[in-house]
């Protein structure tokens, strides 16, 4: 077998192992599924009624933001899962096996797509139930979900790197929260970016978090008719710009985390 086939086969074995855990510990699913439902409902009913933005349908505007935020936080599973495996010595066992050096990480990032897919489905159903509408074709809607999954897959590789660098599951959760929380708010996720103060506004207009949200709004047909012209090249070419970010993040963080894995200093 050539090394690519080996890597693929090993990745499948590891991904399968991770998925079995979802089956065996269904409690995890409760959180994966409940918190997105909660977010959609909170935003729809609390903010959706309280915030009035120039006549745009705020509920419709919000849902893409909630999707983006949830899949980004969903990628945390990658870091937490790796940190846990490391704490339990399972990574050491894998590292002493003649298996692909990328497979443990690739298997983890791949299986975490399953978590995000599940929470997207649940959020979409909840959203549809409270009045969210997809105003485009089926194909474009699928492309919207696919883009969200791709984006969270890229974030998973960042998380893999964090998970390998940080010593315990608890620290992982705190570290990740510190990074993701501001990122998801300094964007057009919950308010239009031109409502942000100067400085933060430029940041938000070029942030991939904004562009993925914008791209998804476009693909779902949720961009308000009276929305102003996109204020940056990035937002104007949201899909392309997001895809470039996804490619760059993976190109940097996949090799970086494999390198970290090879050089782990823990017995």
């Amino acid at each position: 077998m050539n090394s690519l086939a080996v890597a693929f086969a090993d990745t499948t074995v590891i991904a399968k192992r991770n998925l079995i855990k979802i089956k065996r510990v269904p409690e995890i699913l409760v959180f994966v599924l409940l918190s997105p439902i909660m977010f959609v409902l909170l935003f729809a009913f609390v903010f959706g009624n309280a915030i009035d933005i120039r006549g745009l349908n705020y509920r419709e505007f919000l849902i893409a933001g909630v999707f983006t935020q949830t899949v980004m936080f969903g990628a945390t599973f990658t870091a937490a899962g790796l940190a846990e495996d490391m704490q339990k010595g399972i990574i050491s066992r894998f590292r002493a096996l003649p298996m692909s050096r990328a497979a443990v990480l690739a298997g983890r990032t791949v299986s975490d797509i399953a978590y995000n897919l599940l929470s997207l489905v649940i959020m979409a159903l909840t959203g549809l139930a409270v009045g969210w509408t997809i105003r485009t074709s089926f194909g474009e809607a699928i492309a919207g979900f696919a883009l969200l999954l791709l984006f969270s897959y890229a974030i998973s590789w960042v998380m893999a790197s964090i998970g390998l660098a940080v010593p315990s599951v608890e620290v992982v959760n705190n570290a990740v929260f510190m990074v993701l929380f501001p990122l998801t708010f300094l964007a057009n996720t919950f308010v239009p970016s031109n409502d942000l103060p100067g400085g933060l506004r430029e940041f938000a207009e070029w942030s991939p978090v904004s562009t993925v949200t914008q791209a998804v709004r476009e693909l779902f047909g949720n961009v308000p008719a009276n929305a102003p012209e996109p204020p940056s090249w990035a937002l104007d070419h949201a899909i392309l710009y997001t895809l470039i970010w996804i490619a760059v993040i993976i190109a940097i963080f996949a090799p970086l985390s494999v390198r970290q894995y090879k050089r782990l200093q823990r017995a």
């Binding site: 192992r17 339990k88 050491s92 066992r93």
Partner: peptide, 10 residues
């Protein structure tokens, strides 16, 4: 290894 590294969910 020194601590049994089995996957307890399997």
């Amino acid at each position: 290894g020194q601590f049994a590294a089995v996957d307890e969910h399997l």
